[in-house]
Simulated assay, not measured.
Amino acid sequence: MPEGVVLLHGFGGMPVQMALLGRRLRRTGYAIINPHYSSWHWPVERIVDDLAPRFARFADQVSTIHFVGHSMGGLILRAAIAHRRPDNLGRVVTLGTPHGGSELADFLYRLGMHGPFLNRAGRLLRSARRPGVTAMLGAVDYPLGVIAGNRPLSPSLAGLLLQSPHDGLVSVAATHIEGQTDHLVLPVDHMTMIYSGTVARQIIHFLADRQFLRA
């Protein structure tokens, strides 16, 4: 059986955004699934309940199941692994995921504007997560590679809020998490990092070698 990779898009995203990355991984020999989830309408519990059976069926079809999540997708994958961990779990890579919480989400909460902009995702994306949400994400006790960006394409609201390096939406600092295996900062933007050939090569390297490739 081949090794498999689950791809998961970010907040407000669609599977088509992950399609190019999926093709690059298929060329390396991986089987791929690239499901959709309702990031705005559904609470994280319902998202995980919907995705977990699909992940379990895919895990039965591959020798090892890896996970790659962009932005909020990385948090959903952590919650899914904590909810129903596959016996053949391999490695996990997150791309621009605000593991420590999004400063932009915190700003929207301070303005009282989180409802219209974030709806059900707000409690997952903010840094002041309730204990139940934090517990749902689980501890990182599996190989996790984190890729962060520090080259936003254009000025943004987050750029005005963040004083430290960021990708246009998420700071590099917010992408760190206790238990991470490796962390890599690349000159990419939050929304376009999933299309980067360099990012794809780094993902492939981590899935194979449990570390990113450095010159």
Rank of each mutant, 00 (worst) to 15 (best):
L7F: 11
L7T: 10
L7M: 11
L7V: 07
L8F: 11
G13H: 03
M14W: 10
P15Y: 07
V16H: 02
V16G: 01
Q17P: 00
L20Q: 10
G22H: 06
G22N: 02
G22D: 02
R23W: 12
R23S: 06
L25S: 01
L25M: 06
R26Y: 00
R27S: 11
T28L: 15
G29H: 10
G29T: 09
G29P: 08
Y30C: 08
Y30P: 09
Y30D: 04
I32T: 09
Y37F: 15
S38F: 04
S38N: 13
S39N: 11
W40E: 07
H41V: 06
H41G: 05
W42H: 09
P43M: 11
E45L: 04
R46F: 02
I47E: 03
I47N: 05
I47D: 01
L51K: 05
A52N: 10
A52K: 10
R54W: 03
R54N: 02
F58T: 09
A59M: 05
V62E: 05
V62W: 07
V62P: 03
V62G: 04
S63R: 15
T64G: 00
T64N: 00
I65T: 11
I65N: 01
I65Q: 10
F67E: 01
V68S: 03
G69D: 06
G69W: 07
H70W: 13
S71D: 06
S71Q: 06
S71K: 08
M72Q: 14
G73D: 10
L75S: 12
L77P: 03
R78Q: 14
A80F: 08
A82C: 03
D87K: 14
D87W: 05
D87Y: 04
L89R: 12
G90R: 12
R91M: 05
R91H: 11
V92G: 03
T94W: 11
T94P: 10
L95A: 07
G96E: 11
G96V: 02
P98E: 04
G100S: 07
G100H: 06
G100T: 06
G100M: 02
G101W: 06
S102V: 04
S102M: 12
S102D: 11
L104F: 15
L104Y: 14
A105D: 13
D106R: 14
D106S: 13
D106L: 13
F107R: 14
F107T: 12
